[in-house]
Write a protein that binds this DNA or RNA. Sequence first.
DNA 1: CGCGGTATTGATTGCCGTCAACAAAGGTGG
DNA 2: CCACCTTTGTTGACGGCAATCAATACCGCG
Lengths: 235, 235
Amino acid sequence: MLDATVLEARLRPAAVTAAGWPALAPSHDDGTSLGDFLSLGGARMNFERNAEIFAEDDAADYVYRLVSGCVRATRLFADGRRQIGEFHLAGDVFGLDMGATHAFAAEAVDDCVVQLVRRSALFARAATDPELGRDLWHHAAAGFERARERVVLLGRKTAQERLAAFLIEMDTRFGGRGSFELPMSRLDVADYLGLTIETVSRSFSHFEHEGLIALPQARRVRFVNRAALSWRSGH
Amino acid sequence: MLDATVLEARLRPAAVTAAGWPALAPSHDDGTSLGDFLSLGGARMNFERNAEIFAEDDAADYVYRLVSGCVRATRLFADGRRQIGEFHLAGDVFGLDMGATHAFAAEAVDDCVVQLVRRSALFARAATDPELGRDLWHHAAAGFERARERVVLLGRKTAQERLAAFLIEMDTRFGGRGSFELPMSRLDVADYLGLTIETVSRSFSHFEHEGLIALPQARRVRFVNRAALSWRSGH
DNA sequence: CGCGGTATTGATTGCCGTCAACAAAGGTGG
DNA sequence: CCACCTTTGTTGACGGCAATCAATACCGCG
């Protein structure tokens, strides 16, 4: 089912070193007081590239806020297949599961700084702070909406549509300047989009040859024709 | 990209007729007071099979609770491709989007009874009722976790693994008795699992011939070997 | 009984996965 | 600063799973 090199890469041991309710936050914004709560009260930790922040089935006792870097949420099958649930960028809050254990592992895509607080502390505070309660809902609802969009992408879009949608998503999250540096490898992109590295690479090349994007380096993306790329994403 | 019959079926006009935070709810439970709020205050409406409850991009002014029947959340592409985001069964609360408009349409899979209240009423009450606030979070967080599992299913599972996972999910939601009646067509199942009706049908037949399930009628499913089926789902 | 909607099964195609080779980039040590 | 090696990315040839195309069977209902 998998190339040996890819399988090895996936199994590689990670070396650890007040408003009212209806106010709506912009996309990919985890709200304000949730992030504030974490940034004010949280202990800081550093993780180097590929380090495991928490494993699947680890007790979900802590909630994390990414100060800098990029984190992937991964689910690994026994046979080596892997799916990345989401990528977290600076400012994102993650690891807030409903159950007692994490449903996905979290790994540093590149060197990361995170802050963390006990989940129980967050919940305790939420019981008396309605604004924090609203932000918790915002956080969960935003995650839900993003996951639903990925369901559409993975269920019905072609390889090229997936990559186009991914590039537009990343550009948006990096500020929408039409030029950005991907922190993750082709393998990570493939496992995020439900594809293989080869198909991802071919789709990149295809867009480049078509004049939709420029690739000065493998991970450096510059939009040349954003409208066409957007069209290709299948909306 | 699509069979004409299927496309027509998808585009068919729908004829409308008419305490504390950390407490964790069991899966597929929308919490208590959220459902209570809707069942106590909600106006009742009936929808017949294939009726549209709300359209994509409709104003998300109401929140719904399904009293009886089955509802599908759909996203339709311009070229006829369709993805079902989720199925709702009796007791489920749906339509609670974060934005001003619905991200998916909702259609009655079979004859349905729903109750609805204004979203603003829900939010207003949540501002003063911390228990309701917690239930709102529960609802969103549960939706998020389900959507994440579907991302794994759609991103990395084979056709047979998808169907096996679907059957186990449905059995669980119908009480886990190992025997249940599917309210939805093969087309709905296909669009839920990111497959085609033919592949879904073949997978059903395959499981039947293998002795994992029995199919007294097309939509009547009885588990014969649940352990093997569970194994096939890829977990 | 006949009809429309639904489901199954078979034949064939095609997109993407697999296998394989090579190229480019980045790091390390001489 | 370059040789060497490892990691990462690209490209080509081929194969397989699921989609597409097509025909037939089933089922509830007028």
